[in-house]
Simulated assay, not measured.
Amino acid sequence: MSEKPFTDQELLAYLDESLSVALMSEVEATLRSSDSLRVRLATLSRQRNDGVHSVGEIWRRNRLSCPSRSQLGGYLLETLPSDYHEYIEFHLHETGCRYCQANLEDLKAGLSAASQDSNRRRQKYFQSSAGYLSADKDE
Protein backbone atom coordinates (compact mmCIF):
# COMPACT_ATOMS: atom_id res chain seq x y z
CA MET A 1 0.00 0.00 0.00
CA SER A 2 1.55 3.31 -1.02
CA GLU A 3 1.07 6.13 1.43
CA LYS A 4 0.15 9.65 0.47
CA PRO A 5 3.09 12.02 0.86
CA PHE A 6 2.18 14.68 3.42
CA THR A 7 4.14 17.92 3.58
CA ASP A 8 5.91 19.01 6.76
CA GLN A 9 3.43 21.88 7.02
CA GLU A 10 0.50 19.46 6.90
CA LEU A 11 2.05 17.30 9.59
CA LEU A 12 2.74 20.31 11.82
CA ALA A 13 -0.82 21.50 11.25
CA TYR A 14 -1.94 17.99 12.23
CA LEU A 15 -0.10 18.40 15.53
CA ASP A 16 -1.87 21.74 16.05
CA GLU A 17 -5.22 20.15 15.07
CA SER A 18 -5.72 22.85 12.47
CA LEU A 19 -6.29 20.72 9.39
CA SER A 20 -9.69 20.13 7.86
CA VAL A 21 -11.56 17.17 9.32
CA ALA A 22 -11.09 15.14 6.13
CA LEU A 23 -7.32 15.72 6.01
CA MET A 24 -6.97 15.05 9.77
CA SER A 25 -8.69 11.69 9.24
CA GLU A 26 -6.45 10.90 6.28
CA VAL A 27 -3.28 11.66 8.26
CA GLU A 28 -4.50 9.57 11.21
CA ALA A 29 -5.33 6.61 8.99
CA THR A 30 -1.92 6.78 7.33
CA LEU A 31 -0.14 7.12 10.68
CA ARG A 32 -1.72 3.85 11.84
CA SER A 33 -0.08 1.92 9.03
CA SER A 34 3.16 3.80 8.39
CA ASP A 35 6.16 3.55 10.68
CA SER A 36 8.12 6.00 8.53
CA LEU A 37 5.42 8.66 8.82
CA ARG A 38 5.25 8.22 12.61
CA VAL A 39 9.04 8.68 12.80
CA ARG A 40 8.85 11.76 10.56
CA LEU A 41 6.05 13.26 12.68
CA ALA A 42 8.00 12.60 15.88
CA THR A 43 11.08 14.28 14.35
CA LEU A 44 9.06 17.35 13.37
CA SER A 45 7.56 17.53 16.83
CA ARG A 46 10.98 17.24 18.45
CA GLN A 47 12.41 19.98 16.18
CA ARG A 48 9.52 22.25 17.09
CA ASN A 49 10.02 21.61 20.79
CA ASP A 50 13.76 22.23 20.46
CA GLY A 51 13.07 25.72 19.11
CA VAL A 52 13.63 25.15 15.40
CA HIS A 53 11.02 27.48 13.91
CA SER A 54 10.45 28.93 10.48
CA VAL A 55 8.62 32.18 9.78
CA GLY A 56 5.72 30.10 8.45
CA GLU A 57 5.61 28.05 11.65
CA ILE A 58 5.51 31.17 13.80
CA TRP A 59 2.79 32.62 11.55
CA ARG A 60 0.64 29.48 11.86
CA ARG A 61 1.23 28.90 15.55
CA ASN A 62 0.27 32.47 16.49
CA ARG A 63 -2.65 32.42 14.05
CA LEU A 64 -1.55 35.67 12.41
CA SER A 65 -3.84 35.11 9.42
CA CYS A 66 -6.90 34.48 11.58
CA PRO A 67 -9.42 37.30 11.89
CA SER A 68 -10.21 38.56 15.37
CA ARG A 69 -13.43 37.62 17.11
CA SER A 70 -14.85 41.11 16.50
CA GLN A 71 -14.01 40.79 12.79
CA LEU A 72 -15.80 37.44 12.71
CA GLY A 73 -18.77 39.19 14.34
CA GLY A 74 -18.69 41.81 11.58
CA TYR A 75 -18.59 39.00 9.03
CA LEU A 76 -21.62 37.39 10.68
CA LEU A 77 -23.53 40.68 10.70
CA GLU A 78 -22.35 41.48 7.15
CA THR A 79 -20.90 44.86 8.15
CA LEU A 80 -17.40 44.35 6.73
CA PRO A 81 -16.06 45.80 3.48
CA SER A 82 -16.54 43.32 0.63
CA ASP A 83 -12.79 42.58 0.27
CA TYR A 84 -12.44 41.67 3.91
CA HIS A 85 -15.69 39.69 3.85
CA GLU A 86 -14.28 37.68 0.92
CA TYR A 87 -11.01 37.09 2.79
CA ILE A 88 -12.84 35.70 5.83
CA GLU A 89 -15.01 33.59 3.53
CA PHE A 90 -11.82 32.18 1.96
CA HIS A 91 -10.19 31.67 5.37
CA LEU A 92 -13.19 29.77 6.73
CA HIS A 93 -14.08 27.67 3.72
CA GLU A 94 -10.96 27.22 1.58
CA THR A 95 -8.29 26.94 4.25
CA GLY A 96 -10.78 25.29 6.60
CA CYS A 97 -9.52 27.02 9.76
CA ARG A 98 -11.23 25.02 12.48
CA TYR A 99 -10.30 27.60 15.12
CA CYS A 100 -12.15 30.37 13.30
CA GLN A 101 -15.04 28.08 12.37
CA ALA A 102 -15.50 27.26 16.06
CA ASN A 103 -15.36 30.96 16.95
CA LEU A 104 -17.97 31.73 14.30
CA GLU A 105 -20.28 28.96 15.56
CA ASP A 106 -19.95 30.34 19.09
CA LEU A 107 -20.85 33.83 17.85
CA LYS A 108 -23.86 32.45 15.97
CA ALA A 109 -25.09 30.69 19.13
CA GLY A 110 -24.66 33.90 21.14
CA LEU A 111 -26.51 35.93 18.50
CA SER A 112 -29.37 33.44 18.51
CA ALA A 113 -29.60 33.50 22.33
CA ALA A 114 -29.52 37.32 22.38
CA SER A 115 -32.30 37.42 19.79
CA GLN A 116 -34.47 35.08 21.89
CA ASP A 117 -33.85 37.19 25.03
CA SER A 118 -34.76 40.34 23.13
CA ASN A 119 -38.02 38.78 21.91
CA ARG A 120 -38.93 37.71 25.48
CA ARG A 121 -38.27 41.22 26.81
CA ARG A 122 -40.34 42.75 24.00
CA GLN A 123 -43.25 40.42 24.84
CA LYS A 124 -43.07 41.30 28.55
CA TYR A 125 -43.06 45.03 27.77
CA PHE A 126 -46.03 44.61 25.47
CA GLN A 127 -47.97 42.53 28.00
CA SER A 128 -47.30 45.00 30.82
CA SER A 129 -48.16 47.97 28.60
CA ALA A 130 -51.32 46.39 27.23
CA GLY A 131 -52.96 46.46 30.66
CA TYR A 132 -52.23 50.20 31.03
CA LEU A 133 -53.51 50.99 27.56
CA SER A 134 -56.78 49.12 28.06
CA ALA A 135 -57.25 50.83 31.47
CA ASP A 136 -56.92 54.25 29.79
CA LYS A 137 -59.68 53.40 27.31
CA ASP A 138 -62.11 52.50 30.11
CA GLU A 139 -61.76 55.90 31.80
Rank of each mutant, 00 (worst) to 15 (best):
D16N: 14
L92D: 01
L104W: 02
Q71A: 13
S118N: 15
L104V: 05
S45P: 05
A135G: 10
E3G: 13
D35P: 06
R32S: 12
A135P: 03
G56Q: 09
Y125W: 11
D136G: 06
A113I: 07
L44Q: 04
L12Y: 02
D83P: 07
Q47M: 11
S54H: 04
V52E: 12
E139H: 08
R60V: 05
G73D: 04
R46C: 08
E139Q: 09
Y99I: 07
V21N: 04
L12Q: 04
R60E: 09
D16M: 13
S82H: 14
L64V: 05
S118K: 15
S82R: 15
E94T: 14
M24Q: 11
S129P: 00
E78P: 06
C66H: 15
S36R: 11
S54F: 01
I88T: 03
S112M: 04
E26G: 03
S118M: 14
Q71D: 15
D138S: 14
P5N: 03
S45Q: 11
H53I: 13
A114G: 10
N62W: 02
V55G: 12
I58L: 13
S128V: 10
E17T: 04
D50M: 14
S18N: 15
N62Q: 13
E3T: 12
D138T: 10
E10V: 08
L37I: 02
L77H: 07
G131L: 14
L104Q: 03
N119C: 07
Y84T: 11
R38S: 13
I58N: 02
S65R: 02
L111W: 09
K4R: 15
D50L: 13
